[in-house]
Amino acid sequence: MKLKEIVEKLNLEVATPASDLDRDVSGGYASDLLSDVMANSREGNVWVTMQIHQNIIAVASLKELAGIVVVNGRKPEQKVLAKAEQENIPVMLTGLQAFEIAGRLCELGIRGNTK
């Protein structure tokens, strides 16, 4: 499934308009621990988190994630969003909690990384 379909179906707000949403999503990963995401997320994953610290962009870029969904109505600072656009990492926002967004992503057919 393409990221832009997810954005439409889950009514996400795209905080990085310059980033490219026309990319395939390989699966989902939910975590607020950067070391965990570094270790266990996979290329093309959509990452669900409530972290808005600028390190999330570095992690997503390094792991070549498809995008970041920031939950709980939180919004990263402008400089973090600017960095995201520069690295072409789409950042999407929602007022839902991580549990529900992960649940709804699964409902859309996005799968987790099981061995």
Binding site: G73, A98, C106
Partner: peptide
């Protein structure tokens, strides 16, 4: 042993909910 994403997916499907849309 399941990851967070998968655990949420299964429980959501079986009827657990979140808190809906939050305004911080």
């Amino acid at each position: 042993r399941l990851p967070m994403f998968v655990s949420c997916g299964r429980l959501f499907k079986n009827g657990l909910t979140g808190l809906g849309y939050l305004d911080i």
